[in-house]
Design a binder for these strands. Structure first.
Lengths: 165, 165
DNA sequence: GATGAAAAGTTCAGGTTGTCAAATGTTCAG
DNA sequence: CTGAACATTTGACAACCTGAACTTTTCATC
């Protein structure tokens, strides 16, 4: 579809991208740090965060994180070794292993999320209504993408992967 | 006891943090993908982006990226092996090695930055004035931090005094 | 000027993340 | 039942990242 795009991006967009890059870097560091404080790695924390919505097949985790399923195997192995998750067979389809967060896993993830003092650093510079403004803008940006993770455990996938390239 | 439980954070802040996490994930994937398309890793691309501002000591790179200096050694090794950077001794202080981007390094970094179609995906959902709104909010958030240098910044129009109210 | 603390960078060992190709076990169509 | 397709795992390998030990250079102090 419509492969044409303006050869030059407007300056505001370019600046927003740069600002976003800085913010992403900041957030990423905070996240890794908060995870490390609980002897978790960033990847482990991400998987755990995903599981707060409910059990999820390995394959779904890999898709959401945009990595190979074989990678998830190792991460879940270590998570399981520490008692943060368990693997359960999906009775509907025995090929599938559902990864389930344990109580320890759930509370670790919640603690981590709430400990993100990212909210108190850069976000503190904004007034209440400005924060709402920011929320609305971010919402609209993200709603336009399909990045939402479906909480449904064994959701039937539409599976129409449009690959660009 | 009544621990005076600070209302954790207001719900809007918490939601903004969650949205930010999704945005960070999205941006991160885009960045890794764009880097991989040029046979660079994310870490290498970050270092290269840092060097667009000029030569930089290893130490400074490590500080900016919040990692150990010994880590930078390996990344710069690989970057140097591919001809994207060189190491030069600082005449002022011979302990210091200045990492300098070569022409190839500079252009690879520029190409990468411009190829980030992140701007065209989620950002396309916003109108022009909304983008400006977002830019102002992000600016204020980042000005409040001591984040200093960061990969992606261009040092173009440096006007930071744009206060909208 | 010599001495020792401190800093910048490197090396080495070890763990984690990530990819890819080749397995295993399960489901489904014919 | 047979074979294709799928989910997961295993193994080999590269890159990232940390921590401790080491070399070279600077700087304060004597």
């Amino acid at each position: 579809m419509a492969e044409e795009q303006a050869p030059t991006v407007d300056p505001i967009t370019l600046e927003v991208v740069d600002l976003m890059a800085r913010l992403v870097g900041l957030f990423h560091r905070e996240y890794e740090e908060a995870a490390a404080a609980r002897s978790l790695t960033g990847a482990q924390a991400k998987v755990l965060a995903l599981l707060r919505r409910g059990p999820m097949p390995m394959r779904h985790i890999a898709q959401t994180l945009s990595c190979e399923p074989s990678n998830i195997t190792g991460i879940v192995d270590r998570l399981e070794g520490r008692g943060f998750v368990t693997r359960e067979s999906d009775p509907q389809d025995r090929r599938v292993k559902l990864v389930v967060a344990t109580d320890a896993g759930r509370s670790a993830s919640s603690e981590l999320r709430e400990s993100l003092n990212f909210a108190r650093e850069p976000l503190a510079a904004l007034e209440g209504d400005e924060r709402a403004q920011l929320r609305d803008l971010l919402r609209r940006m993200l709603d336009s993408t399909d990045s939402g993770t479906s909480p449904g455990a064994t959701g039937s996938t539409g599976g129409s992967a449009a690959k660009t390239g």
